[in-house]
């Protein structure tokens, strides 16, 4: 188990998240993918802290966690708004600004 292994794992998880972000139509499913990606990033913070020394990486990860949670809260609120206005949560239906 080396640092590069952890980084590879984080990259793979991140790309899986990107795949979900690109394919999913439901807004909530997109939020799930974003969580996946954020988690992969957090993993990198902690791995850096563990392999390179110092506690700052963990502090950063904590902040990042809190911000991700905030993002989920706002994201869900937006999903509910979207559902109210369109009676649906598929993001490709919400493209009024294009017209």
């Amino acid at each position: 188990m080396t640092l590069s292994h952890v980084l590879m794992l984080a990259s793979a998880l991140f790309c899986v998240g990107v795949y979900g972000l690109l394919t999913r139509r439901q807004a909530i499913a997109i939020l799930l993918s974003v969580e996946l990606m954020a988690n992969a990033a957090n993993l990198v913070f902690i791995a850096m802290s563990r392999f390179r020394g110092g506690v700052t990486g963990q502090v950063f990860a904590l902040f990042s966690l809190a911000i991700t949670v905030a993002e989920v809260a706002v994201g869900l609120a937006l999903v509910i708004l979207l559902y109210r206005s369109h009676a649906d949560t598929r993001v490709d239906l919400a493209s009024e600004l294009k017209q």
Binding site: V18, L21, L22, I30, V91, S95, E96, K98, Q99
Partner: peptide, 13 residues
């Protein structure tokens, strides 16, 4: 400009 969020994500990626 499709107006579809995934397409913008694609551009970012």
């Amino acid at each position: 400009q499709t107006g579809l969020a995934p397409d913008y994500v694609l551009a970012v990626v």
